[in-house]
């Protein structure tokens, strides 16, 4: 497959072996690529450091979601049972904290969990059903038993021949160019 340089998405290199991949990833990080990624069938630890990824802000988002759930749960019960339609049952307080704890707790957990779920997928830019990488047959093994490093063509340090040489020096199996709109 001969790629047209203008529609080139990037270059992928395949690995079979985890330690070799780890070393290669560190080299890519040190080379100074910014638009690049590693695709693996399962999470590899130490990879964050090898790639130089900063910790995600997701937990703060979830903390916010949880607090919102708590506030909403409290406000809802206060409004419904004590203000809008006060129900006097056996002379118990209209808004007693103990009786309201279960619903407060459940809504805290519910909104937190929804924030985790939707927050994580949207931060990852998913759902995204089409991606140039899916056009590569070889890349299908990224969800099975192979590991890939992908350098995107938009990376400022990307030079077709230079990058190919660099990737070849990493010790991976096969280097492949992936285009944005290849002919099948």
């Amino acid at each position: 497959m001969k790629a047209d340089a203008e529609t080139l998405y990037g270059m992928i290199v395949e690995f079979e072996d985890v330690p070799l991949l780890m070393t290669a990833v560190s080299k890519c990080r040190d080379f100074g690529f910014t638009k690049w990624d590693v695709h693996t069938p399962f999470p590899l630890h130490g990879m964050d450091r090898a790639m130089g990824i900063k910790p995600t802000r997701l937990p703060y988002l979830v903390l916010g979601g949880g607090l919102m759930g708590l506030a909403a749960g409290t406000a809802m019960q206060l409004w419904m049972n004590a203000i809008d339609y006060p129900l006097n049952i056996s002379g118990k307080p209209l808004f007693g904290i103990p009786a309201n704890i279960p619903v407060m707790f459940e809504l805290t957990v519910l909104v937190s969990a929804l924030t985790v779920f939707f927050g994580m997928w949207s931060m990852n830019g998913l759902p995204r059903l089409y991606h140039p990488l899916f056009k590569s047959r070889r890349f299908r093994r990224a969800t099975q038993d192979r590991f890939f490093i992908v350098i995107e063509a938009v990376d400022p340090k990307f030079e077709l021949e230079e990058t190919r040489k660099f990737l070849a020096s990493l010790g991976g199996n096969v280097i492949e160019e992936v285009t944005e709109n290849p002919e099948d």
């Binding site: 990624d37 590693v38 695709h39 693996t40 069938p41 399962f42 999470p43 590899l44 990879m47 964050d48 790639m51 990824i53 910790p55 995600t56 997701l58 937990p59 979830v62 279960p102 707790f105 459940e106 957990v109 937190s112 969990a113 985790v116 779920f117 927050g119 994580m120 997928w121 931060m123 990852n124 998913l126 759902p127 995204r128 059903l129 089409y130 991606h131 990488l133 899916f134 890349f139 990224a142 969800t143």
Partner: peptide, 30 residues
């Protein structure tokens, strides 16, 4: 939903999984 095993995704995914586990634990007891 277009999962492609990107490590930048795995990174957040694992944190999310841990958070969900942490939330589900008190939830199941409750």
């Amino acid at each position: 939903i277009g999962w492609r095993g990107s490590h930048r995704h795995w990174h957040r995914y694992e944190k999310a999984y841990l958070l969900l586990a942490g939330l589900a634990t008190p939830l199941v007891l409750s």
